[in-house]
Structure formats: C-alpha cells, structure tokens
C-alpha cells in the first residue's frame, strides 16, 4: 500500500453562485497529479453534481477526495434533511428541487443518476432528519 492523498473542502451552503468551487479545485489538483483526463472528468462531474445537491438540499457539507494508487474516492457528507426514498431519488427525472433551482439550470432530477453514471461504485447512506453521506469510487 502506498500513501494516499486527501483533499478536504467545506462546501458553503449559503450561496448557489459559489457552488462548484470545490469541484473546480479538485479538477486542478488532479491535473497536477497527472491523472488521465477522462478520469478527471468523471471525478469532477460526479463531485460537481454532488456539490450542487449539497447546496440545494442540505445547506452545504463536507467533501473529501482521496487519491490512492488504484482509485479515487469522493466522500460527500451533509447534515441536511436526508433522502426518504433512495430508490425513487435515483430515478432519472425525479427531483424535489424547488422551481427557483430549475430556473438556474439545475433540478432536472439528473444529479444522483449522473453521479452513478460517472463513477464505478456509489453508496448512499442517508437518514431522514440527520443527513446523507455519499461515497463514490472511480477506479484508476
């Protein structure tokens, strides 16, 4: 086992305009590490969708990206309302985002399905009233 590298970000839930800053930063860091462009794209899209979700639904949260020899893990943890029905939330087109979010170009019910599509593994651990932790893995 060689050492892994962790990047931590606080995702600010106050301001939709700044949502995605952490993902942009991750993208830059992965580029510096010489990770292949297609992998970088997968990781940054999945993380960006997750970041947007945390801002829309949970008032922000914590994002960790762990780069190890054979994989990149993205862990997004929030203390938001939680997801009552994960299976339903995973359906394309299902969204609980308010109309105000739709007018900003999001809330089409594609966030979670996209995160799954762009990663090799994804687990959702959520309790209503307590929060949600999503762990995604992209294999190198």
């Amino acid at each position: 086992m060689s050492e892994s590298l962790t990047f931590h970000y606080d995702v600010d839930g106050e301001d939709f305009t700044s949502a995605g800053q952490a993902s942009v930063q991750v993208k830059k860091n992965l580029r510096r590490l010489g990770i292949p462009p297609e992998i970088i794209r997968q990781v940054s899209i999945a993380m960006y969708e997750g970041e947007i979700n945390m801002v829309i639904h949970a008032g922000g949260g914590d994002a960790d990206v762990i780069v190890s020899e054979d994989r990149i893990e993205i862990i997004l943890a929030d203390h938001g309302p939680g997801i009552a029905d994960i299976e339903l939330a995973m359906q394309e087109g299902y969204s609980t985002a308010p109309d105000s979010v739709r007018s900003l170009g999001f809330g089409a019910g594609m966030g979670l399905p996209n995160m799954k599509r762009y990663t090799d593994e994804m687990t959702i651990d959520s309790k209503v009233g307590e929060g949600t932790t999503i762990k995604m893995t992209v294999k190198l």
Binding site: F16, S18, E49, I52, L104, G105, A108, G109, M110
Partner: peptide, 25 residues
C-alpha cells in the same frame, strides 16, 4: 445544465440562454 452534464460528451462549444456562474463551471 443538468442535461449538459448528463448527455454531453466531447462537445467543445456550449450555446445557452442561461446566464449564471454555474454555466461556466
């Protein structure tokens, strides 16, 4: 933007009538 993230692959140009920072990101 959700659809751009979902369906687009290798397109170099984005045409849009939406104007906010998330378009750039």
């Amino acid at each position: 933007m959700s659809d751009v993230l979902a369906y687009v692959k290798d397109q170099a140009v984005l045409l849009t009538g939406l104007v906010n920072s998330q378009v750039i990101r």
